[in-house]
């Protein structure tokens, strides 16, 4: 499920969630390391879709971040379009459903 933003643009708004994996020991999201993908909520089983929608409902809120004891842990940024605006939420890996974790692919930029 490698990211393809041209495809994302053709999908109806509010159905497609872009996912970026950030941080870790290597520092994904900075330098030459990228990890990203996407999920089409309409293609998910009801239970999984609702679990992800619950995450999206807290848009803008940072993950555990500085208060978490985890060091070098991954974070996931979920971004989507809603009412013509870009929205995003960031979560720690421990809060990321398996579907979100599995959606990204690591690559060199």
């Amino acid at each position: 499920m490698r990211s393809d933003y041209r495809l994302m643009a053709r999908k109806p708004p509010g159905k497609c969630v872009k996912i970026e994996r950030l941080g870790g020991f290597a520092g994904f999201g900075m330098g030459h390391l990228r990890s990203d993908g996407e999920i089409d909520l309409e293609e998910l089983p009801e239970e999984e879709r609702r679990a992800i929608e619950r995450l999206l409902s807290k848009r803008g809120a940072p993950g555990g971040g500085a208060k978490s004891p985890v060091r070098d842990g991954f974070r996931y940024r979920l971004s989507w379009e809603e009412d013509g605006e870009s929205r995003s939420v960031e979560i720690d890996e421990s809060d990321a459903p398996e579907r979100v974790r599995a959606a990204v692919k690591d690559r060199l930029d």
Partner: peptide, 10 residues
């Protein structure tokens, strides 16, 4: 294929 190592507090 996990590209990471981390400390989880414990």
């Amino acid at each position: 294929n996990y590209n990471n190592a981390f400390w989880n507090g414990q």
